[in-house]
Simulated scan of single mutants.
Amino acid sequence: MTAAGDPTHPVGGSSPGRWQPDTYLRFAGERARPFAALLSRVGAESPRRVVDLGCGEGALTASLARRWPAARVTGVDSSPEMLAAATAWALPGRVAFELGDVRDWAPAGPVDVVVSNAVLHWVDGHPGLMARWAGHLAPAGWLAVQVPGNFRAPTHALLAALCRSAEWADRLADVAPRADAVLEPAGYAEVLTAAGLSADVWETTYLHVLSGPDPVLAWVRSTVLRPVLARLDDADAGRFTDAYAAALRTAYPPRADGTTLLPFRRVFAVGSLEPLSEG
């Protein structure tokens, strides 16, 4: 999830590829906004069991327990680094965290609310996974998913082009971000309705105002750039990052006041086994 660590992408063997909660949380406020927007359309009133698939460092998972005080909330993530940070949010009998891959998740019984925030773009074939999760919902259960929708934006297109360039293709072409990593909103509506859910699907483009040196690079360093750097030693990672940073500065130039605008599109999909309200 956005403040929760896109967990299903394999953690690389070199230090640049590991999840680093402190780096990810530099933009915690900006990354939390889509989570709040996603949950605003979940109408569950008194769920008993809530699961956050891709919980990362746990802050937003804990917010689910505040919204639903009677629920037992479980966060699942495959990053030991993120889960180590998440222990600060654990509450005996109310909020728990466990190590696991969202692709393999199967609950012991029906779940009232399943949330997956900024995770599924790492998972090939995730529409089928969403359908499987829908099958684990309790009567009147809810499934809520958010994915980045910016894979054709310069942040990702420039990175993909660099990964596939003559200098780097032999090592990085297969980890270049794909433009088709996520569906368009209509595609997610089809996934939810085919799974027997009432669907509420929309998109939002956030215009983030970033500051500091190379702020767009800082934003992507903890997400889409992470698996790329995991393939490289320190010297090559530095050379690659320098080239990518230069391209980002051209695509996202600083404004006169020193800030940089980063448009970021996100796609939201909420499904329920009960009819959804309008508005």
Rank of each mutant, 00 (worst) to 15 (best):
A3M: 11
A4P: 12
G5W: 01
T8G: 14
T8Y: 09
T8C: 10
G12N: 03
G13A: 14
S14C: 03
S14H: 08
P16S: 00
G17D: 05
R18N: 06
W19N: 13
R26P: 00
R26T: 11
F27T: 00
G29S: 10
A32C: 06
L38S: 06
S40C: 02
R41T: 07
V42Q: 05
P47M: 07
V50W: 05
L53W: 00
C55I: 06
E57R: 03
A59R: 15
S63A: 15
L64V: 09
A65Y: 05
R66S: 13
A70V: 08
R72D: 08
T74L: 15
G75Y: 13
D77K: 13
S79H: 09
S79D: 15
E81F: 11
M82H: 08
L83S: 01
L83E: 02
A84Q: 10
A86L: 10
T87K: 10
A88E: 09
L91M: 13
G93D: 03
V95E: 09
V95I: 13
L99S: 12
L99K: 11
G100H: 09
V102N: 04
R103L: 04
D104F: 09
D104K: 10
D104Y: 05
W105C: 06
G109Q: 14
P110W: 13
D112P: 14
V113C: 09
V114C: 06
V119H: 11
V119G: 04
H121Y: 15
H121P: 05
V123M: 01
P127M: 12
A131N: 04
R132P: 01
G135L: 01
V145L: 08
V145R: 04
V145M: 08
P148D: 06
P148W: 12
F151P: 01
A157M: 07
A157R: 15
A161H: 06
L162P: 02
L162V: 08
L162H: 05
R164P: 07
R164V: 00
S165F: 05
D170R: 11
R171F: 00
L172N: 05
A179L: 06
D180W: 08
D180A: 11
V182T: 14
A189N: 08
V191D: 04
T193H: 02
T193F: 03
A194W: 04
A195I: 04
A195S: 02
G196Q: 04
L197D: 03
L197R: 03
A199V: 03
D200M: 02
D200N: 10
E203R: 09
T204S: 07
T204I: 13
Y206N: 09
L210Y: 00
S211C: 07
A218E: 14
A218N: 00
S222N: 09
P227G: 11
P227C: 14
V228A: 03
D236F: 02
G238M: 07
R239Y: 05
D242L: 05
A245N: 01
A246G: 03
A246T: 08
Y252T: 02
P254W: 01
D257H: 06
G258T: 07
F264S: 08
L273V: 02
P275K: 03
S277I: 00
E278I: 10
E278D: 12
